[in-house]
Structure formats: C-alpha cells, structure tokens
C-alpha cells in the first residue's frame, strides 16, 4: 500500500541529508576542477568542522548565553575558520610540494594527511562518540494518515536554509567575483592563466579554503542533525560526498549539488522502504553504475583530449 505521507517524509529526510552531502561534495569537485585531483583529506576537514563547532557551543553554553542563533553563528564562523586553515594546510603540506609529480604521489600524501588528522582528533578528543546537543527543536506537522504524520523539523528547515544561502553565495562568488573568475580561468588552462599574471598558487589554495569552509558548515549542521560525532565521522560522509560529486559529474559545481541531493534521497528511500542496512549498499552501487555507464557523471562534460 502506498502512503504518500510516508513517501513525503522520506523525501524530506533525504533532501536534508542530501543538501549537506552537496555542501561537502562541492569541496571535492572544486579541487578536482582546478588541479584534477581528489582531496582525500576532505572528509577529515568536515569532521574537524563538526568538532570545532561542538567545542565552541559547549564553551559558550558555560557562559549562559541568551540568544541561540548568535551561539550558532559564532560556532559556525569558528568552525569555518578552523576548517579553512586545515584546508589551506592540506594544500601546502600534501599537494603543493608534490605538484607536477606522478598523480599517485599527492594521492598518497593526502591519505597520509587524512590519517594524521583522524588520529590527532582521536588523541585530542578521545575516540568515543560525543553527544552533540540538538539546539534547534520543534517543527511543523502536516498531513496525518492512519497514524502516520509527516513532520518537517526546524532543524531540517535550518539545514535547507543554510545550504541554500551557501550555494547562492558560492554561485555568485564563482560567476561574479574577480577571484571566482580567476578560479574558472585556472581550471580551464592553468599555464595560460599564469602567463597572464594570475598567481595560480593562490587560486589553488583559495579553492581548498572555500571547499573546507563549506565542509565546516556541513559539519555543524550534520553534527546537530545526527546528535553525535566521533573521529571517524568524516570518513563515511566524505565517501558519500565523493560519490555525490562523481554522480553529478566531478568538476561541475551544479553537478555536485544535484549529485548530493540525488544520493541523499536514494539513501532515505532505501532506508524507508527496504532497510537502513542497505543504505550504503545502494549509494555505492549508484557510484559503480554511474562509473560504468556515464563516467563523466550527470552534468559533467566529456573530457576532450587536448592536442
């Protein structure tokens, strides 16, 4: 029997997680677009974003603040700053010194960076799950049928709204700003950009920083949504976001947004109609299928061999 309210609920849940995936996926896709490599430490940057915001929230809670949005905003800004510096450091330590070498070398150094960051958080914060206070509660209920209610929580609305704001700002930044223009130029022809006087090292660093800042936003949002974080928090989310980026077409920013949403919805329907055990199976099967039948992804352009 098909219950449209149940369906709607799964859709809302899926879009919530999916929009957060999209935020992380943008980091993968931007870095790939500009240097043609995957930043394997990106999941850890997201995890660090979640930890930073938790620490800031806990610290501020001790001061007994009155206004919740301010607490969240401060936490968000701190997380973005810390994660951005991590993103910058990853580029400086793991990518720039080995740029121009064989492609496997930055891959390995990035994985090393990821292991380092993961274990650093293990040491500093302990390996146990830490509860993340859900600061935003309440929600709207609409539609009830035979005991089932469709609910959209304020937390979910916050995730949608924040993601929407971030995506809009990013799109404006890429299409309008001077640095965004330079990013597009560097991703199309790095050598020529450099010959025209663009400092390509700065632009590459900027893409790592922007991707990391968005991952931090996702870290705060998903940390609150799931209610607990641990040092391995970034691993699966990173893989999922990577899948989303490939699904949408790696290198394409709208593709990352679309891929994230599709993946989130696919997972949520699997969990809702099959079993939540199959959630990961379905998302990674999607990855395999897309690689087999449309390697450039949904919105990716086929790679044209340069002569």
């Amino acid at each position: 029997m098909f219950d449209e309210f149940y369906f709607l609920q799964q859709l809302i849940n899926g879009l919530t997680v999916g929009s957060a995936y999209a935020l992380i996926a943008i980091g993968y896709t931007m870095v790939y677009g500009i240097i043609g490599m995957i930043n394997f430490a990106h999941g850890e940057i997201y995890m660090i974003g979640a930890y930073t915001s938790l620490i800031v929230i806990t610290g501020l809670a001790a001061l007994n603040p009155v206004w919740l949005p301010l607490v969240l905003l401060v936490a968000l800004i701190c997380a973005m700053i810390v994660s951005s510096s991590m993103g910058w450091a990853v580029e400086r330590v793991a990518y720039r010194p080995v740029r121009g070498q064989h492609r496997l070398i930055p891959l390995i150094s990035a994985i090393g960076m990821s292991i380092f960051l993961q274990n650093y958080v293990h040491l500093a914060q302990g390996s146990r799950n830490i509860g993340f206070p859900s600061l935003i509660d309440g929600g709207f209920t609409f539609g009830t049928s035979e005991g089932f209610q469709t609910t959209i929580s304020n937390m979910q609305l916050t995730i949608f709204a924040t993601t929407l704001v971030c995506m809009t700002l990013l799109s404006l930044f890429i299409s309008r700003s001077k640095t965004g223009r330079a990013c597009r130029a560097v991703s199309q022809d790095r050598k020529m950009s450099s010959l025209l006087g663009i400092d390509t090292n700065r632009i590459i660093a900027a893409t790592f920083v922007i991707g990391a800042a968005l991952a931090a936003v996702a870290g705060l949002l998903l940390g609150m949504y799931y209610g607990s974080i641990d040092p391995l928090f970034g691993f699966i989310a990173g893989l999922k976001a990577f899948t989303a980026a490939v699904l949408g077409g790696i290198g394409s920013i709208p593709g990352a947004m679309l891929g994230g949403l599709i993946l989130g919805v696919a997972e949520s329907f699997t969990a809702g109609y099959l079993s939540s055990e199959y959630k990961d199976v379905v998302s990674f099967s999607l990855l395999i299928l897309i690689l087999l039948f449309r390697p450039t992804g949904l919105l990716g352009k086929p790679e044209v061999e340069k002569i």
């Binding site: 330079a182 597009r184 130029a185 199309q188 950009s193 025209l196 006087g197």
Partner: peptide
C-alpha cells in the same frame, strides 16, 4: 589559440586584468 573557451569574450579580457 589558448583562450578560456568556456568563458565569455569579455570575461577573457577581465580575467587577464586580474593583477
């Protein structure tokens, strides 16, 4: 020719003035 082919004509000239 090494233009930024997926950018508009005027963007090509703007990006060259980056510095």
């Amino acid at each position: 020719v090494r233009l930024f082919s997926r950018m508009t004509v005027v963007e090509n000239l703007l990006v060259a003035q980056h510095r």
